[in-house]
Amino acid sequence: MKDILLLLVGFVLSACATPHRPISFVPAKEAVWFKFPSNLPAEGQVKIPATLAAAIQLVVDDFVPWYAKPHQNADTFDACLHEQASYDVVAAPGPEGVVFVSIWLSPGACGHYRWALDLGAVYAVDVRNWRILAVQH
């Protein structure tokens, strides 16, 4: 019992130490019109295995932290660079226990700046211990 209590306390403390993105929901009176389809549309559907999804989230949160804000006098381009939705991601399994995740600025996301398309990196993620092994810029 003591071990379980220590484990629980450790989990709570580690969860409190990690900044979490606040989740936003539409007010119920605004969402009342929305209806789910009886089945998800087959066209465009993508199944992402859990380890790939978690590795992608780890990389996106490192490369573009949700809490990082552009400087006070930032223009729209700088503000765009701080948005996670401005980046494309590709993930692929690597050697056992490793997932490679490539992240780069989506073409046209922040305007047409050719040099900005080089903004990106490839990560090697240890999916056993949820750590970033290496980053290649």
Rank of each mutant, 00 (worst) to 15 (best):
T18G: 03
S14T: 12
V60K: 05
C16H: 02
R131E: 02
L133M: 14
F63I: 01
A28E: 09
L52H: 14
A134I: 14
Y67V: 00
A91P: 02
A124G: 05
G111H: 08
V9A: 12
G111W: 04
I56C: 12
A134L: 10
H20L: 15
P49R: 05
K29D: 10
Y87P: 00
W115F: 04
S38N: 05
A85K: 15
A54N: 14
K69M: 02
S86T: 02
R21C: 04
A68V: 11
I23D: 09
F11K: 06
L6Y: 14
F34S: 13
A134D: 11
P70M: 02
H112E: 08
C80Y: 02
F100I: 06
V101M: 10
G111A: 07
E83M: 15
L133K: 07
R21T: 14
F34L: 09
L133W: 08
K47Q: 07
L6W: 14
Q45S: 13
H112A: 10
V89T: 14
C80Q: 04
L5W: 10
L81S: 00
L5C: 10
P70T: 01
Y123C: 01
G108W: 06
V26F: 09
A79H: 04
A31T: 05
S106K: 15
V127Y: 01
G120R: 03
I23N: 06
A54K: 15
I132N: 03
A116I: 00
F25G: 08
S38R: 13
G94N: 07
G10V: 06
V89Q: 11
V135M: 05
K47A: 11
K2L: 13
S106H: 11
N73F: 09
Q84R: 03
L40K: 11
D75C: 04
F25Y: 15
D62S: 06
G44K: 00
E96F: 13
R114V: 08
Q57L: 13
E83W: 10
A17L: 15
